[in-house]
Design a protein around this nucleic acid. Structure first.
Length: 277
DNA sequence: CATCAACCCTGAGAGC
DNA sequence: TGCTCTCAGGGTTGAT
């Protein structure tokens, strides 16, 4: 389930190690879309035509979106749960199950979008901001200061964990990294956001950044069959560790459903605050 | 505004 | 072995 570190890892890998090595700056020779529901816009019939002879000038990440500059177009891809992208140096190998989009370049390489659960989505638009402007700030952006983050939390009565998963509040966090950041912060996932103190909110922002940077350093997490690049899954403290000992205190990690999502926590390290008078 | 349930999907794993 | 059932989860939508 690609979150910010996994998407960042994919972006860096697709760009290539050196110029000419990756997907950048090769004219598109042919595009094949075999699962049309993945395409949000434009109409499928227009998609291939729009991309013909265009080149990917740059590839960046915004939240969990991949942003391909294909002037005058921008292609956005969101991998959702099980999407993956791979760049192949041949166009003759047989395609794999669940390959839904193939972009072939004129140097006989190809970019392939694979997505078993078919939740991933693709946009090709002149106005990427219509989609991207819905996103909250980038957690790793230094412009997001501790003061700003504290002020953002102060305006929300929501429980902190579902709030952090809301991409319009902050962009790029999913269930894994939210769970890990709250564990490192020793904050209970049900804490109302506006009840976090300034100190706690500072610790939380720093924990979010640390866990994302750790994830990127390990090339992301390989969970289930989606995205098999990294090994950060071997470094989880709480996520997926129900009944296993908390790495900090040794008490068992528990699991509960919060906002329809599995949440793992250490009830000793992350106690629920009791309101006192 | 906050919360929740359903939905979109497939494959893995459990149970039989 | 092979069948059926349940579950996971990001984001959207609609209901409460």
């Amino acid at each position: 389930m690609p979150e910010l570190p996994e998407v960042e890892t994919i972006v860096r890998s697709l760009r290539g190690k050196s110029p000419g090595d990756g997907i950048l700056n090769h004219p598109i020779y042919r595009t094949t879309l075999s699962w049309e529901k993945a395409l949000v816009e434009p109409q499928p019939a227009l998609f291939s035509h729009c991309l013909l002879q265009k080149s990917i000038g740059s590839l960046n990440r915004r939240g969990k979106f991949l942003v391909f500059d294909l002037a005058p177009w921008t292609m956005l891809i969101h991998l959702r749960m099980s999407g993956d992208l791979r760049y192949e140096s041949t166009i003759s190998d047989p395609l794999q199950k669940h390959d839904h989009l193939v972009i072939e370049f004129d140097n006989h390489t190809r970019l392939v979008f694979n997505d078993p659960r078919k939740f991933g989505r693709i946009w090709l638009t002149h106005e990427p901001e219509h989609v991207l402007s819905q996103l909250g700030p980038e957690p790793l952006d230094e412009q997001l200061t501790q003061e700003k983050f504290y002020a953002m939390l102060q305006t929300k009565k929501q429980r902190i964990k579902p709030l952090l998963l809301n991409q319009s509040f902050i962009a790029g966090l999913g269930n894994i990294y939210t769970t890990e950041a709250l564990f490192r912060s020793k904050i209970h996932p049900l804490t109302p956001a506006c009840q976090l103190t300034k100190d706690e909110s500072g610790i939380l922002l720093q924990s979010i950044r640390n866990v994302l940077e750790d994830g990127i350093r390990h090339n992301g997490s390989s969970i289930d069959w989606a995205y098999r690049g990294g090994n950060f899954q071997n470094h989880f403290s709480a996520y997926g560790r129900e009944d296993q000992p908390c790495p900090a205190c040794g008490n068992p990690i528990t699991r509960e459903i919060i906002g329809q999502r599995s949440t793992y926590l250490c009830p000793v390290c992350q106690p629920q605050k009791v309101l006192s008078e």
